[in-house]
Design a protein around this nucleic acid. Structure first.
Length: 381
DNA sequence: AAATGCGACAACCGCATTATC
DNA sequence: CGATAATGCGGTTGTCGCATT
C-alpha cells in the first residue's frame, strides 16, 4: 500500500499561479493566517490547488519581505561557505539569509554559483583518457572519473552534491597543503571554513553532525574548527532573527582598527577569511595559484586571498602567479582499492607528490592522492 | 526568419520527519 | 505506542525567454 495522496490530483490545478489565485491566497492568509492546515486551506478559499502547492506559493513568493534575485556578495559568501560545510541543506542555508527562500537559493546555486565555483576547470587529460577508455565521468560538475575497474558503486554512493563538496574541499586542501610544502608550519590553523564567523551567533546549524564533510575533513587534518560545537536544537527559533541583527552582529564582526566596512578585508572576514595581518603570525609564507609558481614561492598573497579570488574570479586581478583566472585544479582522489582517480590533474598532483604531508597519512593528502574512503564515510548523501 | 540551445526560475513530486489521535 | 495525517525538504522537471546558429 502506497501512501495516500495529499489531494485529489484529478481536480487540482497545476502549473503557474494566476494573479487571481495569488490575490485570493494572500488576502486570506494575511487576514486569517494559514489556520495550521494547508490541506484544508484551498477548499476554504475556493482554490483548486493542492495544499502543498499553496504553502509553497506562500512561502516562496507571497509572504512579506521576500527578496528575489540580485544576490549580494555577502549572500554568495554565506551560501558558498555553508554549502561546502553542510551540503544541500537549503532550508538551513536560507535561514541564514533573511528574505531568501530555500528554493531561491537552490536555484541560484544550481544555475550560477555552482558553475562559478566548479565549472571553470577543463577536464584533465587523465580524466578525458579515462572517459575515452570507457570510464564514466562526472561531466556535469567537471568532476573527475569515477572509480574504475568495477568499483563504480563506491563512486555512485556519492551524490553530486557530495562530489561538489569534495571538489571544493580538495581545492582548499590543495591550497592548504601548499603551505606545508613551502616549509610553513604544519601546525598552521585551519583556514576553511570558519563558520563560527560566518554564521549568525544565534543561528546554529541543525543536523550538522560530526560525520559531515567539514567535520570529517577537518578532523582528519586535526582541524578543531568543525561544526560539532554548535547548538543544533535552537536553529529553528534562531532563524527568525532579524536582518538587522544579521548585518550588525554577523557580517561586520571585525572590530579592529583595520576594519573597513565594505572593503576587501571586510568581504573576506565575512566569509571567514582571516585578514592577512591576523594570519601573519602563523603563516609567514605565501602561495600562488599556478603549480609552477607554487614551487617558486611568491609574493605576500595569502591563502585566504587565493580562495577569495578563486570564488570571485579575481585571480587575474591579483598579485602573484595567478594568471587569467586559472585556478589550481584538484589534487587526486583515490579509491580505497587504490585503483581509480577522481579529479586528477597531473601538474598539481606531481607537485603535491613531492610534498611531505605528515606522518599520519589517513585522510591527508597522501602523495598525490587522498583516500576516498575518508570522504565516503563522512557523507550522508 | 526559423530552428535550436541554453539559462533561469517556478512548480511539482516523493520521501522523511513531525505532530496528532 | 503505533497508525495516520500534515508538514518540511530536497531533487527534479517543465516552461519561458533570450541568444546563437
Amino acid at each position: 500500500m502506497g501512501r495516500a495522496p495529499c489531494c485529489d490530483k484529478a481536480s487540482v490545478k497545476k502549473g503557474p499561479w494566476s494573479q487571481e489565485e495569488d490575490a485570493k491566497l494572500k488576502a486570506y492568509i494575511e487576514e486569517n493566517g494559514t489556520g495550521g492546515n494547508w490541506i484544508a486551506l484551498p477548499q476554504k478559499i475556493g482554490l483548486k490547488r493542492c495544499g502543498k502547492s499553496c504553502r509553497l506559493r506562500w512561502l516562496n513568493y507571497l509572504r512579506p519581505n521576500i527578496k528575489h534575485g540580485d544576490f549580494t556578495q555577502e549572500e554568495e559568501h554565506i551560501i558558498c561557505s555553508l554549502y561546502i560545510s553542510i551540503g544541500s541543506r537549503w532550508s538551513i542555508i536560507a535561514a541564514q539569509l533573511p528574505g531568501r527562500t530555500d528554493n531561491d537559493i537552490k536555484n541560484y546555486w544550481n544555475t550560477k554559483l555552482k558553475k562559478k565555483l566548479l565549472g571553470k576547470r577543463a577536464p584533465s587529460r587523465r580524466a578525458r583518457a579515462n572517459h575515452e577508455l570507457g570510464g564514466a565521468t562526472l561531466a556535469a560538475t567537471g568532476g573527475g572519473a569515477m572509480c574504475g575497474g568495477g568499483t563504480a558503486s563506491a563512486a555512485q554512493a556519492l551524490s553530486s552534491s557530495a562530489l561538489e563538496r569534495i571538489q571544493l574541499h580538495m581545492r582548499l586542501q590543495g591550497l592548504y597543503s601548499a603551505f606545508s610544502c613551502a616549509g610553513i608550519s604544519s601546525n598552521a590553523p585551519p583556514q576553511w571554513p570558519k563558520l563560527e564567523m560566518t554564521l549568525l551567533p544565534n543561528r546554529p546549524l541543525p543536523g550538522v553532525q560530526p560525520t559531515d564533510a567539514v567535520a570529517t575533513a577537518a578532523s582528519v587534518q586535526h582541524h578543531p574548527q568543525s561544526l560539532v560545537g554548535h547548538n543544533l536544537a535552537a536553529a529553528a527559533a534562531a532563524a527568525a532573527t532579524t536582518s538587522e541583527v544579521f548585518e550588525t552582529e554577523q557580517l561586520h564582526p571585525a572590530a579592529g582598527a583595520n576594519y573597513i566596512p565594505g572593503g576587501p578585508d571586510d568581504q573576506r572576514t565575512k566569509l571567514g577569511f582571516c585578514s592577512s595581518s591576523a594570519e601573519a603570525g602563523v603563516l609567514t609564507g605565501t602561495v600562488e595559484m599556478s603549480s609552477a609558481s607554487l614551487l617558486g614561492g611568491g609574493f605576500g598573497y595569502g591563502l585566504h586571498d587565493e580562495l577569495y579570488d578563486f570564488i570571485y574570479s579575481r585571480c587575474d586581478q591579483s598579485v602573484g602567479g595567478a594568471q587569467g583566472g586559472i585556478v589550481p585544479p584538484l589534487p587526486e582522489l583515490q579509491c580505497p582499492d587504490g585503483g581509480a582517480i577522481i579529479g586528477a590533474d597531473e601538474k598539481f598532483s606531481a607537485w603535491t607528490a613531492s610534498c611531505d604531508h605528515g606522518p599520519d597519512g589517513a585522510g591527508h593528502l597522501q602523495g598525490n592522492s587522498v583516500n576516498l574512503h575518508d570522504y565516503v564515510l563522512g557523507y550522508d548523501q
